[in-house]
Amino acid sequence: MKIILILIISMFLYADENVDSQKVGDYEKGRTFYFHLFRESLGYDGVVFTARHKELEWAKMFEDDAREFKEYLVNENSDLKELLYSEKFDKSIKNHMEAFVRHYANDTGNIPICGSFEFE
């Protein structure tokens, strides 16, 4: 049973490598988008922002076309509304953003190595 489960997991792992990163999301791209498009309006470093939630909590916010995530950010700063409800966000930012917040969520253990100013 375990080996079947693992086979399925590894098929996904393998698939991940080959699918378009746009669909899956690249946390490093998400980090760049956060840095250039959100950081100033939100007033926090990415490390602080991503650590606000657990991975599954972030994942839930991205369900239904990131409905909750968008509301959450607009609540923080309404200036972000235009960007969050744009075609650009849905098409080229959303998936990377999801990968980013999930990668550094507070229960993943993925904390940037100290001395690495990843979010500066």
Binding site: K2, I6, L7, S10, M11, L13, D107, T108, G109
Partner: peptide, 24 residues
Amino acid sequence: MKKDSSITRRDIIKATALLGVTAT
């Protein structure tokens, strides 16, 4: 504390070997 992975890497390697895939 870090998140545990109850499936060990060896398990994944065994499985990926069946698929002819290696990660590194």
